[in-house]
């Protein structure tokens, strides 16, 4: 067995092969982010001083709650529409199903800037929606739709619905068809099967999708920047302003730390919940 000599199963080779990637992640991701977070606790004013001043600022706490609210609403809307759409896609006949999947993948591969920009053309003061409403005589003067929370949420839902649809189609297709057949042959109506059998079985998948959308919209930058502007400042845009406009490194680092902690906590907590509900889920 010459293989034993060259390719010992002792893991040393495994460590050596994964070393470059491991070192890159540690050196260029963990250490820099760790340094940012650690830096916020080394403020000359006191250990928690940057956080005290963050939460003492009415503006900055408003930004935090606005960001959480936008992310929560985006997640709920994406879940509802994503689930209904994924259900229809998963039931569609072969050819149509591939077409629908392609149609969901395409926006996902189109950049976030392009997708936010599209809504800028639609929702702007002289945008398409206002032009249409004016020409139909529904309104007398253009509506202010841009730079509202609604605009940001529409842009975010647009960003994340395809992701939700694609991940839920996978979940729905993994549910054994026998279960649904059993339900209907035992006399459940299609609606009862949907609500009482399909939906509970899809809950772990819904949680995973919700985590993806929540963390994605909680940390998104381009969409709130273009569609929300300064009036709808969120954590990501505030971080950028603090760092690149005001050069307030401590303030920016504090926001970065708050974003990281909230994101990681939600991911870990929800993964735990998803595991408890269904031990088979990964």
């Amino acid at each position: 067995m010459t293989s034993r000599r060259f390719w010992r199963r002792n893991g040393a080779t495994g460590w050596a092969l994964s070393a470059p990637a491991t070192l890159a992640v540690i050196g260029f991701l963990l250490v820099p982010i760790g340094a940012v977070i650690a830096g916020t606790f080394m403020d000359p004013r006191g250990v928690f001083a940057p956080y005290v001043s963050y939460f003492n600022s009415g503006f900055r706490t408003t930004v935090l709650f606005r960001t959480l609210q936008i992310a929560a609403l985006t997640t709920i809307i994406s879940l509802i529409f994503g689930f209904m759409t994924a259900y229809v896609v998963s039931r569609a006949p072969g050819k149509l199903k591939s077409l629908l999947i392609v149609a969901a993948v395409f926006p996902l591969l189109t950049g976030v800037v392009v997708r936010a920009f599209a809504w800028l053309i639609i929702l702007g003061r002289n945008g398409i929606l206002n032009q249409t409403l004016l020409s139909l005589g529904i309104v007398n003067e253009p509506l202010e739709m841009l730079y509202t929370q609604g605009a940001v949420i529409i842009g975010m839902v647009y960003l994340f619905v395809p992701l939700m649809v694609l991940s839920l189609v996978g979940v729905l297709e993994n549910i054994p068809k026998d279960v649904l057949q059993a339900s209907s042959s035992l006399g459940a109506s299609p609606m009862a099967t949907f609500w009482q059998v399909l939906l509970p079985l899809a809950v772990p998948g819904l949680i995973v999708g919700a985590v993806l959308v929540f963390t994605g919209s909680f940390t998104a930058y381009a969409t709130p920047q273009l569609l929300g502007g300064e009036r709808q400042t969120v954590l990501a845009t505030l971080l950028q302003q603090r760092a690149m406009v005001s050069f307030d490194w401590v303030g920016a680092s504090t926001i970065a730390a708050i974003m990281t902690v909230i994101t990681i906590t939600i991911v870990l907590a929800m993964t735990h919940v998803a595991r408890r509900i269904n031990p088979m889920a990964t």
Partner: peptide, 22 residues
């Protein structure tokens, strides 16, 4: 898990951390 960290941590925080440290 280590190798999926770059998509787990907020991208914008990662960018800011690289600016600060590099």
């Amino acid at each position: 898990t280590l190798f999926v960290l770059p998509i787990l941590v907020p991208e914008i925080v990662f960018g800011f951390a690289l600016l600060k440290s590099l």
